[in-house]
Design a protein around this nucleic acid. Structure first.
Lengths: 237, 237
DNA sequence: GGGTAACATTTGTCTAGTTGTATAGCTGAT
DNA sequence: ATCAGCTATACAACTAGACAAATGTTACCC
C-alpha cells in the first residue's frame, strides 16, 4: 500500500493551482522558500515536486529569478505567407520584437545565391528577437538586398514589423518561395538570447521570400526555442 | 508466565521518562538509533515500542525530523461565541496562525445559500492553519461575502486574528448561528498540513456566523486533527 | 543618462542525519 | 514443526543546514 508521497501531493496541489488559473501562464510561482512554508515542508521536498512538474514541462526555473509557469508551445504555421504578428495574435498571444543589430555588409556566398546577387553586393542584415507575451520565442535573421530596397534601414528601425517596413519601401506583398527546417542544438549565444540552456534543442528554418514579380527580397534564418514552439505546415495559411 | 516483551519494557521506560519530565512535551526524543544503542537492542525493537506509545497518543513522529512528545489533546469549546485565540489561551497554550491562501472568487451553491447570496457573487476565501504551541491543530476555511465587507482582504493579511480583522471592517460582534460536526478521514493534502498520516480521523465542523443584526457574515469549515483536539459543546461559552 | 558597485533574493548543489518500509534470517517457547 | 519476537541490512523519503551561483534591485557617481 504505497501512500502518495508528500512531494507528489504538493505537485498535484500546485498543478491544480495552475489549472485553476491561480498562477498565470508565464507568471512566477512563489519562491521555493515560501512554498515550503505554505506546505509546511522542507524546501527539498518542494524542489522534488517542482522537478516532477518541470519534467512534465509544466514549469521551468531560472536560477536567481524564480520558477515560472511554462507557456504552452506555440503553434507557428509555416506556409506561403508567414507573418509573425498574425501568427501569434491568432493564438491569443501578444507578439513583441527586440532589435538586436542592424548592419549593412557584403553578401556572403549563400546569401548572394538565395537573393540572386553577386557575392560582395551590399545587403542589409537584421538580427532580432521575437517574443510572445514577453517570452523569447525565436532568434530571427533577415538578409535584404540593400541595393533594391533603399530606405529600408530607417523603416526597420522605426516600424515594429518587417511587413510594415517592407511596405514603406514599396513591397506591397511577398510570399515564401521555400522554407527548410532543421533541428540543431543551441549555441551559448543563442541560448542566452532565448533564455534556454546551452545545448537545448532548437528549430532552424531557412527561407527565401519573393515579391509579386518573383524577385527574391528576403533571405531569412530563424532559430526557434524547441520547447516553446511547434512549427506547423500544411494549413493553407 | 508470559514474560513482558522487550519492546514493552522499553515503552514503559520511555513513558516513565516522559512522565518524570525528562523529555519536555513537544520536545524531541533521541533518535531511534541512539535509543537502540542505549537499550542495547535493534532499532526495530525501539520502533515497536514507539509505535505502541504513538498508538496511545503519547508521542508522534515526523519522518526525517524525529520523534516528539505529544501534547495532551486540546479541549476546544464550540458554542455561540467561538474565538480561536481565547479558546487556546484558556488552556494555557500559545495560539498561532498561518495564512495559506487568500483569494476572491465566485460563490458556490453551498456557500451562497449559507451567506444568503446568489451563486456567483464574489466571496473572499481564507484558508489557514491553526497552531497550538507551534503544532498544527486545525485547517480552517472561512468564506466571507466580499461585497459586504470591503477592505477585509487587507485586514486579514495584516491582523493576526479574524475577530480583529472583522472589527476593522465594522463588525463589532458576531456569533455562531449553527455548527455541524462530522467525522471524516484526512485527504493527502489535509494530512500534509496537519502533519498526520493520510486516512487519519479528522473532525469537520461547518458553521455560519452572523453579526448583531442577524446578517450572515462568515461561512466556516474547519478540519481538526482528531487526536489532538476534543470538541466540547454545552458550556455556555 | 548611463554605467557600476553593492545588496538582497532566489535557485542549484552538497553533506549529514532521521524516520518509514521491505526483506531475510535467527532463536526459543509452545 | 510452528510461530512470535527479535536481529541484521538496505534503501526510500524527508528534514536540516550551509554555501555557491545567477538574477533583480537600488543607490550612487561621473
Amino acid at each position: 500500500m504505497a501512500r502518495t508521497p508528500v512531494w507528489k501531493s504538493i505537485a498535484i496541489a500546485l498543478t491544480d493551482d495552475i489549472a485553476q488559473g491561480r498562477y498565470e501562464t508565464g507568471g512566477k510561482l512563489p519562491a521555493e522558500a515560501q512554498l515550503s512554508a505554505r506546505f509546511g515542508v522542507n524546501r527539498h521536498t518542494v524542489r522534488r515536486a517542482l522537478a516532477d512538474m518541470a519534467a512534465q514541462g509544466l514549469v521551468h526555473s531560472r536560477r536567481g529569478a524564480g520558477v515560472f509557469v511554462a507557456a504552452k508551445p506555440t503553434d507557428y504555421p509555416i506556409g506561403k505567407r508567414v507573418r509573425f504578428h498574425q501568427n501569434l495574435a491568432r493564438e491569443g498571444r501578444t507578439p513583441g520584437k527586440k532589435l538586436l543589430t542592424l548592419e549593412t555588409r557584403a553578401a556572403g556566398l549563400r546569401e548572394a545565391e538565395a537573393l540572386r546577387l553577386t557575392a560582395g553586393d551590399p545587403v542589409l542584415v537584421y538580427d532580432g528577437l521575437s517574443l510572445a507575451d514577453g517570452q523569447p520565442i525565436a532568434l530571427a535573421q533577415a538578409v535584404f538586398p540593400a541595393g533594391l530596397l533603399p530606405g529600408l534601414r530607417e523603416a526597420l528601425e522605426e516600424e515594429s514589423s518587417i511587413t510594415k517596413a517592407l511596405k514603406r519601401c514599396g513591397v506591397e506583398d511577398y510570399t515564401r518561395r521555400e522554407t527548410r527546417i532543421a533541428a540543431k542544438l543551441a549555441t551559448a549565444t543563442q541560448a542566452l538570447h532565448l533564455q534556454i540552456s546551452e545545448g537545448a534543442p532548437i528549430l532552424r528554418t531557412t527561407s527565401v521570400s519573393v515579391d509579386t514579380t518573383g524577385t527574391p527580397i528576403e533571405f531569412g534564418r530563424t532559430w526557434f526555442a524547441g520547447d516553446r514552439v511547434t512549427l506547423t505546415v500544411g494549413g493553407e495559411t
